[in-house]
Amino acid sequence: MTEIKFVLGITFLLLLLTTFVIVFVFFYQKRFYFLKKEKQELIAKYAQLLLQSKIEIQEQTLQHVGQELHDNLGQVASLIKINLNTLKLEDTAGTIEKIESTKGLTRQLIADIKSLSVSLGSDRVKQAGLVKAIEVEVERLNKTRQFIVTCQVGAAIPDIDTDKATILFRMAQEILNNAVKHSKAKHISISINNSNKLFILAFEDDGIGFNTEDKRQSAGAGLRNLSSRANLIEAQLRIQSLPGNGTRATIELLL
């Protein structure tokens, strides 16, 4: 009888042991499967966001090019045409002056076309780097003469992975666009620095500012997009603003 009880007892213990082993294996593999699925989803989301950023950069570039062609290049070409149409060969002094002026305008036109062709390059960030791409944006904004935009670049800015640089550039464009459209600012300053492998991109304007809490709770997609892009590249985004006190936006990325 004791022997029977002993056998049954041991068998019951073995039953518990095997159940534990099976449950452990099952849940381990289940967890691995979900982590793998989550990782694949993150990779897909990252790729989608990267593609979206590239498309948005291209759209913005085309918009800028169209505006430049109309406002700037078209104007200069018209002036060249007027100059040539109003040439009077009998008035030598006047003709020479107009030809010189036309030469100057033509040089300006060629320079502007060259500059535009650079911005039409399919991957500006990849070719020129993040800092240069931001400097081109600054130049573009300054040309409108509606803002004074300054860009201060610190020493020893390291190269950033192209994909992260593309997303950072898109975030920079978004922040600048928001400043242009909503802030009514006169001065926008950008600073690019690197400190102990921490890349810092900061924007500051002297505009009307806004209530960041209200913006976060409202349905606006702008801040949400910025946040989700920052999360995707594991960057820290801080936006500080108060009505009447301008806006300061900082992006920090650990390299």
């Binding site: 381990y28 593999q29 691995f32 793998k36």
Partner: peptide
């Protein structure tokens, strides 16, 4: 299974 978890849910 521990060393080479399969892609399919166990």
């Amino acid at each position: 299974i521990f060393k080479n978890p399969t892609g399919t849910h166990i």
